[in-house]
């Protein structure tokens, strides 16, 4: 690792100015856990890092919205989100997923915004937050825009964010009536990165599935929403038969990839099993009141 410029803007606006360049060796630095790995491995050599630790504290706020949703400031640490009573009430699936997400030290410093912006398909939060219908508010030199988290990723370690754009906030819509679950599967040590992550959210009305979001990660090149699986559930009675239909649809539509954690073929079979199990788990968890 070679020396670089480390700058400490005091505001989001100042940070965006410092990042407004075409130079890809200028990058924002929040928790830094992922960036440090790349720097230590020599795969990323920055010329300038823009430390976001000193920007306005409001960007680290975690709060429930009046309508039963959540706003998570991008600079909130994962640990802060994990421990938030608001998050526990509105979206208990998030703290449950946190228990087995990376490790305590990473959760203590990694930020929600950085976690999403890194674009790593093996992360747990993208499927969870997208299954909850989450969006990110993104700020850049050209102003602010909103992006659904399910559309944030354009490829393997790639996002639709432009150079100089920063995730400012994660916005979750009202969760009342939705039942959610996240399950992941590791194929080597228990604390490995997942071979597969499945997040599901179901809205049940009068005993039938009115709406659903089913997301797969890790087994695919990027976070993927499984529309055919969702379609298979629409209007169905929740239960083994419907979940099996959804699982088969998921296995058919998902484009799984080979890696050291397993072959594409195997991951497709894992997906079939885990979609079923995650849907059942969501029903067991029950809807958020």
């Amino acid at each position: 690792m070679r020396g670089f410029e480390l700058v400490h803007p005091a505001s989001l606006g100042e940070a965006i100015k410092l990042l407004d360049t075409d130079d890809p060796t200028v990058r924002p630095f929040s928790g830094g856990t992922a960036l440090m790995l790349m720097m230590k491995a020599g795969v990323f050599q920055p010329s300038r890092l823009v430390d976001l630790g000193g920007i306005e504290p409001e960007h680290a706020a975690v709060e429930a919205t009046g309508d039963g949703g959540l706003k998570l400031g991008a600079m909130a640490t994962l640990a802060q989100v994990e421990r938030s009573a608001d998050v526990m009430r509105v979206a208990p699936v998030i703290p449950r997923a946190m228990k087995r997400l990376a490790n305590v030290r990473v959760r203590n410093v990694a930020r929600i915004g950085g976690n999403l912006a890194h674009g790593d398909p093996h992360m747990d939060l993208p499927p969870v937050l997208s299954s909850l219908g989450g969006e990110v508010a993104v700020t850049g030199p050209a102003g602010e825009r909103r992006i659904a988290i399910e559309s944030l990723f354009s490829g393997y370690y790639e996002t639709v964010l432009s150079q100089g754009e920063l995730i400012r906030q994660v916005i979750l819509p009202p969760q009342r009536g939705w039942a959610s679950a996240y399950m992941k599967c590791t194929t080597r040590s228990a604390d490995d990165w997942p071979a597969l992550g499945v997040a599901v959210s179901l809205k049940l009305t009068d005993g039938a599935v009115q709406d659903s979001r089913i997301m797969v990660s890790a087994a695919t090149e990027k976070l993927t929403r499984l529309a055919a699986a969702e379609a298979a559930l629409e209007g169905a009675q929740p239960g083994e038969a419907a979940f099996a239909r959804a699982a088969d649809a998921a296995a058919t539509e998902a484009e799984t990839i080979d890696d050291a954690r397993g072959s594409a073929e195997y991951k497709t079979e894992l997906l079939r099993v885990y979609v079923k199990r995650a849907l059942a788990e969501a029903v067991r968890n029950g809807a958020v009141q």
Binding site: L37, R188, S189, A190, D191, D192, W193, A260
Partner: peptide, 16 residues
């Protein structure tokens, strides 16, 4: 060797 690090060469942890 394509997995010469603890990120990719997994050893038993406490959950194992």
């Amino acid at each position: 060797v394509t997995n010469a690090s603890f990120a990719d060469y997994k050893i038993p942890g406490i959950h194992d």
